[in-house]
Amino acid sequence: MVRSESSHEAREVLDADDVQRALTRIAHEVLERNKGAQSVVLLGIPSRGVPLAQRLATRIGEVEGRAVPVGSLDITMFRDDLRMRPARGLGRTELPDGGIDDAVVVLVDDVLYSGRTIRAALDALSELGRPQSVQLAVLVDRGHRQFPIRADYVGKNLPTSTRETVQVLVSELDGSDAVLIGGTEGDDSADPSGEQGGSV
């Protein structure tokens, strides 16, 4: 899914160390805001949100001295643009053993763009249980929201044009960590509804 062909003109805006630092900061913010991690459940949105959530869970666990529940939440079936593209395979939805009822669910994604993914995630979440509250952590917020949605934790605010592409690489899937910004890429990048994972 990584559009490597665009990377010849892509510019690195966060390197591996920047990504590490951003995640560490977010981990602390989550703890601070929730006064610990007692009822926190991290849910990554496939595909790149999942390893990011796992890393956050590790960092929070190190600070707190105990494991934080982490899982994944696939939103494919809840997308409002399903009918605009061919059907595609599903990601994995995997809830931690305790479920999400009465938990503080922190959704984790790589890029926040139009907000449609998060809207779908909220729908998907409501089918799985009733959390006490839902928060959102993203590595990059590139603006251009189409829904009244904001992130609670942001690794990097990245002002972009809709004609640019933002690509997040994570070592678990891509071999290295980085955030790249690419040049104008034609029509699909001009449509901010198509945000998901590293291909946006």
């Binding site: 079936m77 399903l82 009918r83 593209r85 061919p86 059907a87 595609r88 395979g89």
Partner: peptide, 14 residues
């Protein structure tokens, strides 16, 4: 049913 009908086009036979 999902793969045939879920999107703008079938996911099968590509």
């Amino acid at each position: 049913l999902y793969l045939l009908l879920g999107g703008s086009d079938s996911a099968l036979g590509g």
